[in-house]
Design a protein around this nucleic acid. Structure first.
Lengths: 302, 302
DNA sequence: GCAAAAGTGTTAATGTTACACCCATGC
DNA sequence: GCATGGGTGTAACATTAACACTTTTGC
């Protein structure tokens, strides 16, 4: 039925599409890539226990040669956008079928000096035990970096019609031998009692390629927020875990100790089922009570 | 300093970029567009008071001829992604400098039968008083539609490793004379106690072009969520408004009366400053107490 | 006066936080 | 027994919700 509709030229849809496929496009299309933020919980190289870690790849050519970049790559013309992210993730970590979420699409002119590139960023949370191949094994120089972000400045400037609010956020990355960092400025412009615009820009960076510091900052914010109202944290844990492991991972992501033990349990109690199993006793020099193993309660509703 | 680094071919960055610009690209790039969700509060054509409304444009050619689509268009190679959304918005509504937020990037193969198109969606909230040109004035057949979405089915299916949760959401659009709708299925796949994947697909649609029903559904969800923890609702109101106007708009977006009057005030009291002015008495047949005019409190912190 | 809509106050229920305490274990 | 980390109970406080009430206006 739909195909019997004709346009102003008197074409059916089929005729239209046939003609369309023959015309050579004038349109200069940007390239499209995905950039993946792959987070895991790993051991700090300096031996300070567990840390939130991010996978980065060392660039082997210009531009930004020898600097660190997010893994990612070009979309194939016959591949769904999310499939590109999944493929890139599988190529880097040999992990499939894990949590993957689209974050934001970065599309400023000049993001890449070679070509106009629009990049959709995705966030993946992988449990290191599920990772079949550790990053860094293959030819590409891929490494896990400790990630950290913190606000270093907040400023409010008054304008005629309202005010601007700026915030400087520093992203720090290190893996024992290598160090990289970037400072992102977010600006919120308020005029006539309304938020007009929120912008993000990189004001300083070292050893991080492209605008990837901005993507990392965005992803960390999303992760920190979502952890409080979704079940994504369990993607970073083993299937069975103890309360203290959960709390440790929570605090690594949040970057602070927000809850006392008892209250932390109450916060997560609906999301968790305690099993009868006990984890082997670990830390205490004089022994201690073995903790129960817990599982995510899949009946939990957000 | 950075430019003095040389790659394996012995090139500086400048030499590399020069060579790069001469090579003809093999890469078949998808097209990139933005699609705008432009919401406003307007009067129902049927005379049932205020409604949440969305701007749609009638397609004048194949594919989906005569069906309704979101306004949007192709990115220019020299234009930032957000600038494309701003330009399209200005073209449709002659409104500039208003709230605009990136939602999600849709990039499935086959979204458009003509070509591979990746589309970044943006949401704009406009106050009808700020709109200089009403939609529908120009050559293009653009119209405001009442929007509504509601869950029509929820289903949980158990699998070997876990379960799937499906939800059917119906998007209804109408403007008195025209009607359109779509049904979106969201599926959450849970395996081994972990959320593996969340997918969205269109299971039925009428009179809505492309995958735009899915974009609308996504945008409505975002709007409904953000209204509770940000100040975006004030973009839909005049600079000065009454408590009951605020509550009406809130309920239109939420699609339900969630709060009693007194409690609604408490919920928003930090975000609002009451002025000494009073709005003219409106509805009551025997007259009534005139309401105070309020403004958004720009000192409010989310 | 009185209907209509604006606006306030009071109490109950619920959720959050701090803090003190008990428990099971290995040395 | 005692240090160590696991785990629980309770009271104070803050937030939310329900509901009954007072206020200001125009006719």
């Amino acid at each position: 039925m739909e195909n019997e509709l004709i346009n102003k030229k008197g074409q059916t849809e089929q005729q239209f599409l046939e003609e369309y496929s023959k015309t050579k496009s004038q349109y200069e299309a940007p390239y499209v890539t995905t950039d993946n933020l792959i987070f895991t919980i790993g051991d700090d190289e300096a031996g300070n226990g567990k840390r939130l870690m991010l996978l980065l790849i060392k660039r082997e050519d210009h531009p930004y040669i020898n600097q660190w970049a997010l893994p990612g790559g070009f979309i194939d013309i016959k591949e769904n956008l999310e499939a590109t992210a999944e493929r890139e993730l599988a190529e880097e970590t040999a992990v499939t079928g894990i949590y993957l979420e689209q974050l934001y699409t970065f599309g400023d002119v000049g993001r890449d000096p070679r070509h106009r590139i629009i990049s959709a960023s995705y966030m993946a949370l992988v449990n290191s035990k599920n990772m079949k191949v550790a990053a860094g094994d293959d030819a590409k120089d891929a490494k896990w970096f400790n990630v950290d972000s913190r606000i270093i400045e907040e400023k409010k400037t008054f304008t005629e019609k309202g005010f601007n609010k700026e915030r400087l956020i520093k992203i720090s990355l290190n893996n024992g031998s290598e160090e990289a960092h970037g400072i992102i400025k977010t600006t919120k412009i308020v005029e006539n009692g309304r938020t007009k615009k929120i912008t993000r820009e990189i004001v300083e960076k070292q050893n991080i390629a492209f605008d990837h510091a901005m993507i990392i900052e965005y992803g960390l914010q999303r992760l920190r927020n979502k952890i409080d109202y979704t079940d994504i944290i369990f993607n970073l844990l083993d299937e069975k875990f103890t309360w203290s492991e959960l709390k440790t991972v929570y605090e690594l992501i949040k970057g602070e100790k927000r809850y006392k033990d008892a209250n932390f349990r109450r916060k997560f109690e609906d999301m968790i089922i305690e099993t009868d199993e006990k984890a082997p006793v670990g830390g205490g020099k004089k022994g201690n009570r073995p903790p129960k193993l817990c599982m995510f309660n899949t009946d939990w509703e957000e």
